Amino acid sequence: MKLRSLYRREPNPVLPTFVEAGEHQVPLTFRENARAKRLILRIAPDGGAVVTVPPRTSGKTLTDFVDRHRGWIAERAGGRRTPLLIENGAIIPVRGERVRLSCLGGRRVPRLDAEAGELSIGGLPEHFPRRVADYLKKEARTDLTAAVARHAETVGLQPKALTLKDTVSRWGSCTMDRRLSFSWRIVMAPPRVLDYLAAHEVAHFVEMNHSPAFWAVCRSLCPDMDEGRAWLKANGASLHRIRF
């Protein structure tokens, strides 16, 4: 954020960089947005607090805003600070089901035993987190490719590309020339949530906006889209707590 443009009237503003939340300190970030009309506060997936700031907002306005919302930040962000590390015996969700990770060593092909709730991964222990992530990325590509193909056939338009990323700001995106990008972590969510995300981005093939017309297309592709949206809003941040 260009602080100079935000604080023209205050040459030396002192802004908070964190908020106390029990034993934790919640990082605080200010981001200027030229289209913003008011201050907007949210908790990012990594547990930090982010304030979206309209242009020419004074430093005093920002500090007063944070002071009024310290309790809210502490309450909402305090429980999101502990990451879940990928290690032998850790439990993570895969397609919405709890799965225990097992490091077997050797040159073993990753194997998911859904009935036993266990994902077995070979290789050296120091490579275990990366190999778990590689497995999830492969499964995410398989599931997303199938879901996108199904919805693309319905609208009669095909994607130009499909890429996977590990973003925290958005779960998916679509460009004007129908290039899709998804967070591979979506494979840890229930299949209906992944299906909604794929439908959402394919709907942009028809409507490159979030107008009522767009949501009508999205709902036609995924009638249960409200359930998928609600799940991501309530549980999406928990998937970003997992550290690979």
Rank of each mutant, 00 (worst) to 15 (best):
R9A: 14
V66L: 04
S183C: 10
V132T: 11
L112E: 00
G156Q: 13
H127S: 09
A234M: 06
L157W: 03
D113S: 04
K37I: 04
R219E: 15
Y196N: 04
H127F: 04
V155W: 10
V148C: 05
Q158L: 15
V217Q: 09
R179Y: 02
E227F: 11
I242A: 11
R8H: 08
G89C: 13
P27W: 06
A213W: 12
N209L: 09
L119S: 05
R243W: 08
L124P: 06
A74K: 03
F18Y: 07
R131Q: 15
I186S: 05
A74N: 08
D143E: 12
L124W: 03
R229G: 02
V99W: 05
L85H: 08
I40G: 04
Q158S: 15
V99T: 14
D67R: 15
R111P: 00
R80F: 02
F214Q: 09
F182E: 04
S181C: 14
E115V: 14
A90Y: 07
F128Y: 11
E87P: 01
L124C: 01
A213L: 15
G236F: 06
V99G: 02
H24K: 13
P16D: 11
V66R: 02
M1P: 10
H24P: 00
G48Y: 00
A199W: 08
V132F: 08
M176E: 14
L232Y: 10
K137A: 11
A140F: 09
W72A: 07
A199V: 09
R150T: 08
P27M: 12
K138W: 08
N12P: 00
P55M: 03
R141K: 15
I92Y: 07
K37Q: 13
I91M: 00
S5C: 01
P110H: 07
A216F: 03
H127I: 00
G79V: 04
L85F: 08
E126Q: 15
L162K: 00
S238F: 07
R131G: 06
E153F: 01
L197T: 09
R42A: 07
L164A: 11
K138A: 13
E32Q: 12
C218N: 15
L180I: 05
E126M: 13
A49D: 02
V148L: 09
H240G: 01
L157R: 11
S169H: 07
R100K: 15
I186R: 01
R150M: 05
I242D: 13
A161T: 14
G236W: 03
L3G: 12
P54T: 10
Q158N: 11
T63P: 02
V94L: 12
V109Q: 13
R100H: 08
R98P: 06
P45K: 07
V202P: 01
F18A: 14
P125R: 04
T29L: 14
I40Q: 15
R192S: 15
R4T: 03
A21V: 03
T175P: 02
A114G: 03
D46W: 04
K2Q: 11
T57W: 07
A114V: 09
P212Q: 15
L144A: 06
D195T: 12
H204A: 05
D166I: 02
